[in-house]
Simulated assay, not measured.
Amino acid sequence: MPAPAKNRQMLRFGTLLAFNLVAMSAAAPAIAQPQPPAATQTSGIRAFSYADLADLALTAQLIAGVTVVKAERLKGELAPNLAAGKARFLIEAQTGMLLRGADGLAGTVSYIVDVSLDARGKAPKLKKARFILFANRVPNRPQEIRLTSPYSQLDWTQTTESTLRAILTEATAASAPPLVTGIGNAFHVPGAIPGESESQIFLTTADNRPISLSILRRPGEQPQWAVALGEMVDDSARAPARDTLLWYRLACFLPARLPEKSTAALSASDAEAVRADYRHVLTQLGRCGRTIER
């Protein structure tokens, strides 16, 4: 006697459903939702910031452009722990491009995603929609992927694709800036004339590569600052342009205040001068611009 339709459906989802639901539950606290709109942008395209896209892109094994072939809504037992105002779908999609992913990606992939309901409580139409996905592989299942966060299915736009390509190009270059993890020692040298000085602030990085900030002040001029990706500060050192990988590494990862230990060896006046120079750097960098929390 054939199994009831509901049981056949549950069997069909198999390990894809189980694997994704466990992963979604584990990942949920990692990214908060400080402001609307919701994770997937099917009811109106949201402009994610450079920092948002960099956060997503640099932590995903796979970044792919897909077109949805089939979207099957999961309800009841097939959608446990579903947040209010959301609908859960099992998606089958055709891979159109692969921006990141060693060893390639299958032409057709499956994944699970939660999407926001509209004001009338209706789910968006997903079939034939184009998305950019940030995902990890499912071990031993090349046609199944797992989205990395609630924000990992974005509406495709040319702007989003171009920004991601720029981020990934910089990130894979030999000259890619390291991940900033904190601040080391800082130094300050007064100049020969009043109002002239130079501060140097050394940063700590995930791979111990050297990176430092230098701030030069001259009377009657705006302070000049630069970042050096090496042991020495030379004429090639410049302040980074906004929405570049180096800018992101600084604007989004530097602490809001200079740690006391960084100026512990300085006099009180030199320490205050360094703190003022550090504040100037943060002001020049501007806000990180995240709209989703890491």
Rank of each mutant, 00 (worst) to 15 (best):
K6S: 15
K6T: 15
K6D: 15
N7F: 04
Q9V: 09
G14Q: 10
T15R: 02
L16G: 05
L16R: 06
L17K: 10
V22C: 06
A23G: 06
A23P: 00
M24T: 13
A26M: 12
A26K: 04
A27I: 10
P29N: 11
A30C: 05
I31F: 01
A32G: 11
A32P: 00
Q33Y: 10
Q33C: 11
P36R: 05
A38N: 11
A38Y: 06
A39Y: 11
A39I: 13
S43T: 14
R46E: 15
R46W: 07
A47M: 07
S49G: 10
S49V: 10
Y50I: 11
Y50F: 14
A51C: 03
A51R: 02
L53W: 02
L53V: 10
L53F: 02
A54D: 12
L56V: 09
L56M: 14
L56T: 12
A57H: 08
L58K: 04
T59P: 00
A60R: 03
Q61H: 03
Q61K: 02
L62R: 10
I63R: 03
I63W: 00
A64Y: 00
A64M: 04
G65A: 08
V66S: 04
V66E: 10
T67Q: 11
V68F: 03
V68A: 04
V69S: 10
V69M: 07
A71M: 07
E72G: 03
E72S: 13
R73I: 14
R73E: 15
L74G: 12
K75D: 15
G76D: 13
E77I: 09
E77V: 10
E77S: 09
L78I: 08
L78H: 06
A79L: 07
P80K: 01
P80T: 12
A83Y: 05
A84M: 08
A84G: 06
G85S: 06
G85N: 03
A87S: 11
R88Y: 10
F89Q: 11
F89Y: 14
L90Q: 14
L90W: 06
I91L: 13
I91P: 03
E92L: 01
E92C: 02
A93C: 04
Q94T: 12
Q94I: 04
T95S: 12
G96Y: 00
M97Q: 09
M97D: 12
R100C: 08
R100Q: 15
G101V: 05
A102G: 01
D103I: 00
G104C: 07
L105H: 03
G107Q: 07
T108K: 07
T108E: 13
V109Q: 08
V109G: 07
S110V: 04
Y111E: 14
I112T: 13
I112K: 02
V113K: 01
D114C: 03
S116G: 11
S116D: 15
L117E: 14
L117N: 12
L117F: 04
L117G: 05
R120P: 01
